[in-house]
């Protein structure tokens, strides 16, 4: 138990638990696929840690408020797990509100679990969602 706690504390100190979101404006006349110029591309990722894959240790906080094109924060919410596709879609809605268009393409999701770094004691769960934002029609 002491070892598990030690590893958990070290993980928090060294790796951190952060969420990352970015809206990258296209700013180019270059078209994609069938000749349409996108407005921006968007990516959001959130990370959570669980002891033995079940007990929540901490989680990053999804981007649901504030302005600007980029959010990289080490806000940590202890004993919770907010890294999920549902919370990533909340960040997507916020990004679409900021860009001013709700038309997208190439929505992609990825969930990635990593146990090896902690010798299989703690699961690092990363959920990533990305898409391309198009002009409203």
């Amino acid at each position: 138990m002491k070892i598990a706690l030690l590893i958990a504390t070290t993980a928090l100190l060294l790796v951190g638990c952060c969420s990352y979101s970015e809206i990258a404006p296209w700013n180019s006349p270059v078209t994609i696929n069938d000749g349409e110029v996108p407005k921006a591309s968007f990516v959001t990722a959130n990370v959570s840690y669980q002891l033995f894959g079940v007990l929540p240790i901490c989680t990053g906080v999804p981007w649901t408020s504030g302005e600007g094109n980029r959010m990289e924060d080490i806000k940590i919410r202890p004993f919770a797990d907010e890294a999920s596709l549902d919370t990533n879609l909340l960040s997507l809605h916020h990004a679409l509100d900021l860009v001013g268009s709700h038309r997208i393409t190439q929505l992609y999701a990825l969930e990635d679990d990593d146990w090896v770094w902690s010798l299989f004691v703690i699961r690092r769960h990363k959920v990533l969602t990305k898409c391309i934002i198009l002009e409203e029609q």
Binding site: L85, L89, H93, E111, L119, E136
Partner: peptide
């Protein structure tokens, strides 16, 4: 560690995630 490896491999080999209903409302897809 050995037990953890076995358990982690056995429990984390396949996953299916679907978003909750209504989470994509208001978004138009090309």
């Amino acid at each position: 560690i050995i037990c953890a490896v076995v358990v982690a491999m056995a429990t984390g080999c396949a996953s299916i995630t679907c978003t909750s209903p209504g989470k994509l409302d208001g978004i138009k897809f090309k």
